[in-house]
Nucleic acid binder design. Structure first.
Lengths: 340, 340
DNA sequence: TCTCAAAATGTATGCGAATACATTCAGGCA
DNA sequence: TGCCTGAATGTATTCGCATACATTTTGAGA
């Protein structure tokens, strides 16, 4: 009676492990072992099971597997924006690395908003991923406590902090801003400006740049904020704003190569000389930086190292290994090229 | 005895629906209803359940929910590359749209390889997503049959075909190539070239462009292939190759705006005039196309419409609605600007 | 030929939630 | 008062797989 009712009301027809088991003349448990621990199953049995899988086209149900084993073999990644090459390039590496370890990635965008991030993290946790990769180290208190109480391995990237949720891999944005200021001060320009997108880390670089530049005895740099996502158009508009303010013969530190690229284009369209009239410094050292004319001076962060360290750290934590240190500094380097 | 063994060997301590149920003085079933069908639970009970959830910080386990209901509320997305703005911008929209409908996205990269795609699709199906978004309409036979037998809603984008797996949303790349050829032939240049990345759809545009251009009475266009991902550097190198071949006063159709951008930069660095000496046509009409100098002529595909149609179609299919038509043509449009 | 450990497989149970079906209870109506 | 209906909740089962533990089989050594 229940039997009959159930076959009616539940969807059936799908091939499951039991189907395979029956075909191969074994029990479901043996099929499970054949799939997950083939070394403990006899070769003959393995063959029959594989044959059955072949003819049925059986695909294991990882949802059930995850529930039974409390291991989802998924990691979650939260980035501000996937259209921003800065993040997408890193994710690209990261996904590759964790995939080699058998993990799939669920990707979400927070759009630079901490509250949005919190909502996303809640939704992600309900999927019970084996680990989470977050961008940045600034999160809502609620978000932190969610993560903490979920007991998940968490890696925060692109930034450093003394108190990561779990592990962080990045570099000091303040140091980067200061170093760029010192570099800029060594050039022949008489003043400076910063063009920054509306991004918390960019703001910290900007603040450090401005402070250090002043401390070195120069006038306070001009500042221009770019609304929304960084873009070439945004860079062009920002330079126009600076010129309208009367800026001359200065060095311009942009919060991303894309903005710097826009600045370069605007100078060209106005017949201004770079590095003669203006110096331009980008950030991120994207692939195209060296291909611009003139080649763009930028700040390089080794993204492949960052991605690899992040993946390694996360995988290690998932494997239950507690790292010696909870903060990895991957550093950065100023790459002087033709625009300064 | 089993009781004791189980508490030892299975991980416990997690808050589950039963925890909440006990706290609220109801059964697990009522908690489930409170979460999924609050309208059938009495307000007083609802309050107690919500209070219990509040104090415990309970987060529902969607893995278990998915297993019980055969609904994962996840959609999978397969793209060739997430670092390519062409794809990432679209995905960005798509993710937004399906998220509003309560779906999370699992994203994987196929790297332009059909066999890789097949492996990924298998892995994805094991997660039992509620739907899949694929890029392009060319897949391995095995991949098609996997998808078909999984009975999943599938939307293929960026291309059209008479025989989609399920639904496709895109435009005709052959028509695009031909239209560009006609447009190019109307300009004052005496010959043409195509610079294309190693991408199946780009190749089809190229083939159609070349054929139509010749049919219009011109010489066969020169062709340059760019290895690997499209990039500014690749565009620069491609133009150098064309110049080395002796190309003069021609119109150059690039398979992406990024390549076209590289071509522009190379012309500038050599003092060549655009559109005087060379005409340049991109593809994709990215945001920055209009911000280049001169502004780039390109082919626009309405990505927001594409993303929306894809999301709508997938969600509709998930909801069990069979669409009238299985192929949506979103068209394209040539946007003439300063480079031609 | 017998013993015993290792190898191979079977048995039974739980993971956490959804849901069909059963039950209880209150109120409306004849 | 008795019956019926609908709202609210409880009961029992299932989803597909992993895995602890039990059992059987095999083969090596004595």
């Amino acid at each position: 009676m229940t039997r009959k009712g159930d076959t009616r009301t539940r969807k059936s027809g799908g091939v499951t492990m039991s189907t395979i088991a029956t075909m191969a003349g074994v029990t479901q448990a043996t099929v499970s072992r054949a799939l997950n621990h083939p070394e403990v199953v006899s070769p003959a049995t393995l063959d029959r099971i594989r044959a059955a899988i072949q003819v049925t086209g059986y695909v294991p149900n990882l949802v059930a597997g995850a529930l039974a084993s409390s291991k989802s073999r998924m990691v979650a990644v939260v980035v501000p924006s996937i259209t921003n090459i800065v993040y997408s390039a890193l994710i690209h590496h990261f996904i590759d690395l964790v995939r080699d370890a058998g993990y799939q990635t669920i990707l979400v965008e927070s759009g630079f908003s901490a509250s949005e991030e919190e909502a996303l993290v809640t939704a992600l946790i309900s999927r019970r991923p084996d680990g989470i990769l977050l961008t940045g180290v600034h999160h809502t208190a609620q978000c932190r406590s969610l993560l903490l109480s979920a007991g998940l391995p968490v890696v925060e990237i692109w930034d450093l902090t003394q108190s990561p949720i779990d592990i962080c891999v990045g570099f000091s944005h303040a140091d980067a801003g200061s170093d760029v200021a010192r570099f800029a001060s060594s050039l022949r320009y008489t003043n400076a400006a910063v063009i920054a997108a509306d991004d918390e880390r960019a703001r910290r670089r900007k603040a450090a740049f401005c402070k250090t530049y002043q401390d070195l005895g120069f006038d306070s740099p001009r500042e221009v904020c770019v609304d929304g996502a960084a873009s070439i158009g945004g860079g062009r508009r920002a330079l126009r704003a600076l010129l309208d303010q009367g800026m001359q013969n200065g060095v311009i530190f942009c919060s991303s190569d894309l903005l710097a690229h826009g600045v370069l284009i605007e100078t060209q369209s106005r017949g201004l000389s770079v590095p003669g009239d203006f110096g331009v410094i980008g950030f991120g050292d994207q692939d195209y930086a060296a291909d611009l004319v003139p080649p763009l001076t930028s700040v390089r962060v080794d993204r492949s190292v960052l991605g690899r360290k992040a993946a390694d750290a996360l995988l290690a934590r998932i494997a239950g290994i507690t790292p010696d240190t909870h903060a990895f500094d991957v550093g950065f380097r100023i790459i002087p090229r033709g625009t300064t």
